[in-house]
């Protein structure tokens, strides 16, 4: 379980984070969605203890990242957005080196390194220099390292960025597997649809502030069900009826789009039909995940 507790951080004049609080429970994959430069990476850096916050704290399974950093680090794994290593090391050697910080002996670390690097798909690159690693390989390496201690919490910072389809599938499946195993996973992205399939909840951040926390179901409900209805006629009555169920918008002579429908399609249809309005076609519009996200952003901007 990861608890971000009232974290603030500023870089000189830029306020990167402003009183950010949320949590990632066990057996849960939480999406962390925001536009570029809104503070996702900063939050994650603070959460893994590599960047001291100006205010607030982060608790990893109850251990404060500030006051009990070593223990907190034992319980969290991190795949950075752009992992950087001491590049003149060879992969396995650096793995063994880092494993030393977890108290593993060289022998143990080598054995574990072979196993984990193989698991993340780097079995062929054990003796390759890290400088020669591609972006995807570096991410896989970070994953292998973060699994040294088999921690119950993970932070994935835009892991899907720059990965091939295979890599994307790998990390998605991994997140799902981690949830099944009862771990807490924070999955940051600037594209909501990217995390849609794997997240239970999504935390939205904009300009260093949390602008909403929704379950995925809620988001789907709030975002997707725009209903496009092709009617025999459109008049004031029809518009009034539809207004009871959502926010209708006339597209052309016969077509109406109903945003934010508050009832099931069947209920709306039966009402229309019972009033003798001919319904020729009903279509759900599915592309509005990002629209939902943008509307949140817009609201936040307007609310300022």
């Amino acid at each position: 379980m990861i608890v971000i507790d009232s974290v603030s951080k500023r870089f000189r004049k830029t306020v990167a984070l402003d009183n950010v609080s949320f949590e990632v429970r066990n057996s849960e994959v939480v999406g962390y969605v925001g536009l570029n430069g809104t503070g996702k990476t900063t939050t994650i850096r603070i959460a893994v203890g590599v960047l001291p916050p100006d205010k607030g704290d982060v608790y990893i399974d109850g251990y404060s990242v500030l006051r009990d950093k070593k223990r907190a680090s034992m319980f969290i794994g991190w795949v950075p957005e752009l992992p950087i290593y001491e590049m003149d090391f060879r992969a396995l050697d650096y793995f063994v080196y880092l494993a030393g910080y977890y108290g593993l002996s060289v022998g143990e670390a080598r054995e574990l390194g072979r196993k984990l690097l193989d698991e993340v798909g780097l079995g062929d690159a054990l003796n390759k220099k890290l400088a020669e690693f591609s972006q995807g390989m570096k991410k896989r390496f970070a994953l292998a390292v973060s699994m040294i201690n088999n921690p119950p919490n993970f932070l994935f910072d835009e892991v899907l960025n720059g990965l091939d389809p295979q890599g994307i599938a790998f990390f998605r499946e991994l997140a799902v597997k981690f949830r099944r195993e009862g771990r807490a996973v924070l999955f940051s992205s600037h594209i909501l649809s990217e995390v849609e399939g794997i997240c239970d909840r999504v935390v939205f951040i904009h300009r260093g502030r949390i602008i909403g926390v929704y379950t995925m179901d809620e988001i789907r409900y709030r975002a997707s069900p725009a209903i496009e209805i092709d009617l025999s006629k459109i008049d004031r009555d029809v518009f009034n009826i539809l207004s009871k169920y959502g926010e209708p918008e006339v597209l052309n002579n016969n077509k109406v789009i109903l945003r934010k429908p508050r009832s099931d399609t069947e209920v709306i249809l039966s009402e229309l039909v019972s009033r003798g309005i001919g319904v020729r076609e009903v279509k759900r519009v599915e592309k509005s995940l990002e629209e939902f996200f943008f509307s949140l952003v817009k609201e936040a901007e307007e609310g300022r």
Binding site: V48, V50, K70, M74, P83
Partner: peptide, 10 residues
């Protein structure tokens, strides 16, 4: 590169 190092229990 020290950042990744610092994310270890250290």
């Amino acid at each position: 590169a020290l950042e990744f190092l610092l994310a270890r229990p250290v």
